[in-house]
Structure formats: C-alpha cells, structure tokens
Design a protein around this nucleic acid. Structure first.
Length: 588
RNA sequence: GGGCGCGUAGCUCAGUCGGACAGAGCGUCGGACUUCUAAUCCGAUGGUCGCGGGUUCGAAUCCCGUCGCGCUCGCCA
C-alpha cells in the first residue's frame, strides 16, 4: 500500500506545483521522523523558497493549500509543520494493508517483471573447505538471489567453476604426485575436500621449498596439464575433473548447510571446448584497442579509466581466466535479461576490465551488475587462506553455532511456560534454525562494502539485533494463530477500524511499508536493508504483543481483527526472513 | 607511489542519491514473568559522525585536502 500511497503523493504534489507554476523536478518526498504523525512528507518548500521569494513555511502552506486529495484512495489529508508538507493516509490504507497481508502468505512479493536474472555467487576455486572469509559470498549471494526473486524476477543461481586455471593444475599434479604417506596431517573433518586439500597445500609448499630442479620438473608437469586443457585433450580433462568434482562435491555439501544451493555449476572449460573463448579472442584482436606487445595480445582500456592493459592471450597463445570469463558473460547475455555477480573486492579491477571489454565487443553492459563485498578478517587482523591453511572453517562455525544454540534451548526449556511438548527432534531443529540463522543474520545484516572482523561471541549472540530475536517474533505469531485455531477464532471477515491503538496502527504502518522495502532493496541490490527492516518490524511487533492481547481481547471483533494483524505479521516476518535466508521457526 | 573501498557511542553496526533533535544492539546500572512463549519489555548511561577546509537556507551524507586501515596495481585466479 505504501508504494501506491507514494505514487499518489507524488502525483498530487506534482499537480499542485504545476498549477502554482512551480518546478516539480525534485519533489523532496521522504519519510518523516517517527514522532511526526504523517506517513510521507516533502521538503520541497525549502528549495522553492528562493523561487517564490517567501519563507519556506509560507511556501509550504501555499502548496498544501493547493493540493487536492480528491480522487485518491489512500491520500486523506495534507497539512504542514513548519517548512514541511505532510501527507496523511486514509482508513482504506490500513484496511487494504490488513486484508492484503493477512490473506496472502506471499505478502510483499512484487508483480512479475518478466525479466530473467542470473545471479552468480561464491564461485570459489575448488581448492578446499569453505572458510569464513569466503562465507560472505554465499550468504550475501543467496540473499541477493532471494531478493530478486521476491521482487518479481525469474532467478537462476549459478556457481562458476574455475576448472581450467593454474590452481587446479597444481592441485591435479599434487594429487597425482603425493601419497597419503607424504602428508603430515590428518584431515580435520571426514569429508572429501578436507582430505584432498592436504595435497593442494602439500603441493604449494613443495613448489615454494623444494630444490629448484625438482620445482622445475613439477612446473613442467603443471604446464603440461594446462596445455592439455587448452587443447581440449580429453584425458587431461578427465584427470583434472577427478579432483575438481570431488572437492566441489564436498564444498557443495558445506554450502548446502547454509543453505546455499545452485541451479547450475557452470565450468569454464565449457567455454573453451565449445570454441567460444577462441572466437571471442579473435573478435578482441579486431578491436581498435587491441595491441600485440611483448608477444602477447592485450587490450588498452584507457578510455575506461583503466590504466592496466588486459592481456587476453598469453605469448604461448593460451587464454586467461578473464578471456574465458568474457565468453562466459556473453553466454549469460545470450540467455538472460540481467546478470548479477557477487564477488570479493579483490576482484574489483578484474570486474572493471571485464565490463570494459564486454562493452568494446558491443554488449549492453547495463545488463551486468556487481555486488562487491569486503573481506572477513580474524581478530588481530589475520586473514584467511586455503593455500596456507589459515582461517575458521564454515563447517566449524556452523557446528559451534548449533552447539551453542542447543545449550541455549536446553537451558530455556526448564522455565518454559508454553506447554507444547517439544521433543528431542524439536530441540535439534530449533538449535539448527537458530544457530545457522544467527550466523547468516550476522553477515547479511551488514553492508557488504564494509570489512568485518569475525568474532564468535558477536556472531553467536542470540539476543536483540540477531536472527533469534526476529525468529522469536515468528514463533510468537505461530503460537497465537495455533491457539486461535484451537479456540475457533476466525479472522476472515474483520473490521480493521477497531484496531485503533498506537501499537496496532504502528504495526500496520510497518507492514504496509514491506513491499516498498523489498522494491528498494532489490533496486539497489542491498539485502541488508531487509535485515534492518526485519529487526525494526520485530521491535514494533513486540510492543503490540505486550500491549494488545489477542485471544483474551475485550470483545470478539477486536480479537478477530487482532488475529488478522497477527496473520499479517506472520507473513511479513516470514517473508523478510526468507529473503535473507533465515528460517522462520514455528516454535522455539 | 597510483586506483578503489572503509572510518559514526567503550565494542559491533544502521543511517550516506543533502533535510525535522545522529539511531539500534552489546556492555554497565536499575526495574517488569499467577499473562497469547521473558530468546521479551521499560528506564538510565554513553557521540568533536577520523581530522581540516569548502559548497548550501541546511552536511554524517556532496567537493577539496589530510591521517589511519583494507583491497588492488601478474602472460595468477
């Protein structure tokens, strides 16, 4: 309803300004502070004061006077408070919000845009277990995908697998060269990628520490693997994929715990074998920006403010990661209306070169959008690295989160009032939902551009401003709706006007805003604003919960209307949580 | 050194496409469970929005400078 109201406000204000012969290019429509009893306001009078030659409050009064609310469904009245023009809603605004939200379990979902969007995220090289430094990518990526889906797009989630690069060649060589006996540690966990990463680490250590002769021999083998892939040699490909598929399989299991799941794992070798990479390199050579320097084909991107040349063919004629990624992206453009990529800030330059090169090749690069996130560090400024084996593993973080949540559930079980007979399975379910939810919320609720210092106690705080705080609201809603069903209370035909307390009105106002919050978050690709909304929503709901009894309300009409409000709340909070990838427990 | 990002309460963070007194949580201190679940709620405490200039009726927000931190500047990915 908020979205429609905003449109009405803009139309009414714009019309008034026109009839006063004032410019309406900047309406200055904004949300007023909490203590102002208006739903929207405009600061346009400040800007027009100079034009009119009067003080802002006087201009505001003139504008308010000129605005007609006739013919609008939700715009009830206009008044001023000093220089601000304030806009108030009709009862229909509240009525329609309650009806829409209470009846629709998908409340907040926007109408279809008709666009297909591919969201690529994570895409970590299959070198070993997922650590927390990388975990920001699947968590943010999954939320971005959910958000775009909820905003009406047809979304596919892709994981781009770098199976043709040097790292995988090193891994393959190490896997084939070393034996279990050569390794000096046991796997940290009984899953394939924890087993195999030891070969990768061993191989890298060897390349750094072994005698130069031995290193040279190893490098020759690695180069042979890379060239085999480049030439499309099936046997070499099979050797590499043996490693890739095993490690990726393990990483996939880990990511599924979040859960972050994918519609497709797109391997870069695919764009080598089908000839797209070669064709693309030929087209790049034809551009005016292509130069052949130091035996390698490069692209000069000065006109895109990128000083560094992009090498797209090595002196031995083989392709580079970015060359293959260019072919990958043209494939995306062929198959989707929009392409969103979630990537770490260390890939920013590469992403800029990619966009520039795609533009040179005549693609509409407006279809390509990036979400860039900064690093997650360990306390003390330590980084995380798979090659060096440093960092907190995502599996360990999730286990610890679930363990702490289980302890919490068991402690609370003793003085639990509600008599709904939770069994062992419930305890385990709640521990998992709360533990993993807390981790996800901790990460998804922050702006991706800011770097994060990972701290256990911070991430696993189960109180306010955390996932459990919000999940608890959902559980409370479910508790009420269950009781209401048992008591035969019906919320299908209610009179919204009986909801007249501040707490009830405030709750309806927040619910009404939800679709607009989804819209804005999707436009900006900022799922963290959904997390902020969910927290604010939970605060407002808790006030309602405290002040407005539902089942024991004074009369049946109020009880029914409040029940509808609880249904609305349940849908709103469930959907907000769903977007940020946090489960909504029915009891906890 | 060049480019990009970040700097808001003791700590972790919202707010940043200029607008109403800069907001939460944690922490500290003090209150509220015979009540639809207290993972809750209420109150107190806490700020030169890194620093210095500028633009503006108005700046945490825009511009310039400066300091600190991170990323980046491979025929790696």
């Amino acid at each position: 309803m908020f979205r429609q109201f905003r449109e009405e406000v803009e139309a009414a204000l714009s019309a008034a300004l026109s009839s006063l012969d004032l410019p309406d290019d900047d309406l200055g429509v904004e949300e007023p502070p909490e203590d102002v009893p208006a739903t929207l306001a405009s600061s346009v009078a400040f800007r027009l004061a100079g034009v009119v030659g009067a003080a802002p409050p006087s201009v505001a009064a003139d504008i308010a006077e000129e605005i007609s609310v006739d013919g609008y469904d939700y715009l009830a009245a206009v008044d001023t408070q000093g220089p601000y023009v304030n806009f108030h809603v009709t009862d229909a605004y509240y009525d329609d919000t309650l009806t829409a939200a209470a009846e629709d379990v998908e409340y907040g979902r926007l109408p279809s845009t008709g666009d297909s969007v591919v969201v690529e995220h994570t895409s970590a090289n299959p070198t070993g277990p997922v650590h927390v430094g990388r975990a920001r990518n699947p968590i943010v990526g999954d939320a971005v995908a959910n958000l775009l889906d909820f905003a009406g797009n047809d979304v596919e989630r892709h994981y781009y697998v770098n199976d043709a690069g040097r790292q995988m060649a090193v891994f393959t060589w190490a896997y084939e060269t070393f034996d279990e006996d050569d390794l000096d540690s046991e796997p940290d966990r009984d899953r394939i990628e924890y087993d195999l990463v030891r070969y990768y680490q061993k191989g890298n250590a060897f390349l750094e520490e072994a005698d130069p002769d031995e290193v040279e021999a190893a490098e020759a083998e690695i180069t042979e693997i890379l060239q085999g892939i480049e030439e499309g040699d099936e046997e070499t490909y099979a050797r590499v994929e043996t490693v890739v598929d095993q490690v990726l399989g393990g990483m996939r299991e880990c990511l599924a715990r979040l859960p972050a799941e994918f519609d497709e794992f797109v391997k870069e070798t695919r764009f080598m074998f089908d000839g797209r990479t070669r064709d693309l390199a030929e087209r790049l050579k034809e551009t005016d920006q292509a130069v052949y320097e130091e035996d390698a084909w490069q692209l000069e991107l000065d006109e895109y403010d990128i000083e560094k040349n992009l090498v797209f063919l090595r002196s031995d004629g083989t392709s580079l990661y970015t060359t293959r990624d260019l072919a990958h992206h043209e494939w995306k453009f062929d198959n989707y209306d929009r392409a969103v990529t979630v990537l770490g800030e260390d890939h920013k330059l590469q992403a800029g070169q990619l966009r520039a090169a795609l533009d040179l090749l005549g693609n509409d690069v407006d279809k390509l959008e990036n979400v860039i996130f900064s690093w997650v560090n360990l306390p003390g400024g330590l980084g995380m690295s798979t090659r060096e084996g440093t960092g907190v593993m995502l599996d360990d973080l999730l286990d610890e989160a679930i363990d702490r949540a289980r302890e919490e559930v068991e402690t609370r079980m003793e003085d639990r009032i509600r008599n709904d007979d939770l069994d062992e399975d419930d305890i385990e379910r709640i521990a998992r939902q709360v533990g993993i939810g807390a981790v996800r919320y901790d990460i998804v609720s922050k702006q991706p551009t800011k770097s994060i210092t990972f701290e256990w106690d911070q991430a696993l705080n189960f109180e306010a401003q955390s996932a459990p705080y919000i999940q608890y609201v959902h559980a409370r809603c479910c508790g009420i709706t269950d009781e209401a069903a048992a008591a035969g209370l019906d919320a299908s035909d209610v009179d919204p006007s009986v909801l007249d307390t501040d707490a009830e009105r405030e709750l309806l106002r927040v619910i009404a805003r939800f679709p607009a919050v989804v819209e804005e978050a999707a436009d900006d690709l900022e799922p963290h604003t959904i997390a902020t909304f969910a927290r604010q929503f939970a605060e407002v709901f808790n006030r309602f919960y405290r002040e407005c009894p539902v089942l024991s309300a004074d009369d049946e009409e109020v009880a029914a209307a409040r029940l509808a409000l609880v249904e609305s709340s349940k849908h709103t909070v469930a959907n907000a949580l769903d977007i940020i990838g946090v489960e909504a427990p029915e009891s906890m």
